[in-house]
Design a protein around this nucleic acid. Sequence first.
DNA 1: GCCGTTTTCGGCCCGACTGTTTTCAGTCG
Length: 586
Amino acid sequence: MNKDQVADILQEIGILLELKGENPFKTRAYQNGARALEGLTESLEKVVAEGRLGDIPGLGDALQQKITLLVTTGRLEYYEELKASLPAGLLTLLEIPGLGPKKVKALYEKLGVSNLELLKAACEKGQVAELAGFGKKTQDNILQGMAFHEKYASRHHLHLALAVAEPLLEALRNHPAVTRCSTAGSLRRSKEVIGDIDFVVSSRKPNEVIDYFVKQPAVLTILAQGDTKASVIVEQGIQADLRVVSDAEFPFALAYFTGSKEHNIAMRQRAIARGLRLNEYGLFRSTEETRDPALLDSCATEDEIYQKLGLHYVPPELREDHGEFAAAEKGLLPRLIEWTELKGSLHNHSTWSDGRQTLDEIVETMMGLGLSYWAVTDHSQASFQAHGLRPERVREQIVAIREINRRLEGEGVDFRLLTGTEVDILASGELDFDDELLAELEVVVASVHSGFTAPEAEMTRRIIAAVENPNVHILGHLTGRLLLEREPYKVDQHAVIDACAATGTWIELNASPSRFDLDWRLWQYATSKGVKCVINCDAHRAEHAGYLRLGTGVARKGWLTKQDVINVLPLGELRRQLAKKRSGEG
DNA sequence: GCCGTTTTCGGCCCGACTGTTTTCAGTCG
């Protein structure tokens, strides 16, 4: 078993123990253990074999023993017995908003409710309202929560969440009673998928702002409305939470609701270590339970909060407890890449394969955005479903692009298309075009589009064979994942990154919100090996150019700087690097 | 179940909102 599978099981044990009514700190210990494994950047098998599990904070004797069993035998009797002791459907009940472990436990023990159908039946018969601690209102809310659960998945692609959040933020900003406002939460941290949208506002008239917020046209349902916060469902079925605080409290509330939860816990602990107390309202001297403003250690901005805790400012994207505290203490946080530094995208499609824009339309759109270049990398022949190009069509396209570039040069315009291909990595590990054709193209992206079910070792071999071809500049979407849709295929990502480091091959950060692949968690490893990143739109339509901004947000989560990213280079320097890569000096 | 330069025992982040209660438990973030 690999670390993700083991982490999933620890996570599930934690939940099962909660349903059993175990000591909450014990259940949290399992969840902490799962998180510790997810954050591991090397092979779990290796760590276990070398007896170094104990070096990982959060893993004590009991967890070390269980993890070792799972890794070496693939089984854990403790887990299997625990799982067998409760009906399988109980876990899905926890996905209903408003139902937590205590209520699920009561429903199961008192009514024998063990799955969604039984829960629905019990609500409709009015049995749930009769239970102690429940009532009519709770029963109605459960029914509503179930309807919501059926209709919408609970997680959302980043671009969809942004499309709803940005107009709402603009509306809040324009309200006269709003002093400062911002998005917070996973959206502000540029997570690859979003649970809900968070807004933080400072105002002297919170009720006015909350009233205004819940009446926005995008709001479909009001879930809760109080004096300091409101929760609503907005278009796309996304939950949006608004918190309103005083302006003095704003930086603390913004930091708190931006999270991540793990980052906040570490911040609170730093405060406690300094005899202070940090919460969403301020930084208080001593740990006294009071909101007396006299005790407020005022901070005008988030920056000042970090300073008071002995840290350099941590950009939101880095707030994942992923090494930012060690770096912020020493002033070693990187200057992160900005999306405005990008000059173009090196993996895109046109009407020649499955894209929606002609070459001329691409030129017009991308030039209009102020970009310097745009590589046209249509699919190769094996991607039949995507109208992949035969070699002769590729050569025709090269001619067409040269023609356009000559025209642009004649007009004195500072923009060029680059010729290229997204060539399929075939099951054998060979590429879908021969070396002669690849050498005629300026940009070669190699990607897997078939044989997703190959065993890990075989998939790893295929991809490594592809990046060893000197004609390949860029490895496309390394894991093939489609967020919220399709799991990544099985591949040893570290081994592939090592091969890219050895061959000077660049790795794409595919900026499509369905992909964000390579995952941000692996970029620190990749750059430590000297691998360069290309933030690519994989554009199929004009509006996909906007993915440059979203992809940069995710790149920032991977601690990437301007120096790590190829497509910040001006055209001339980019062409030199493309040639250098091929000559083997890259 | 984890952890320790006050502790090998007794802590473990903490506040708002809802609904069911009449002072609080559960859930959520």
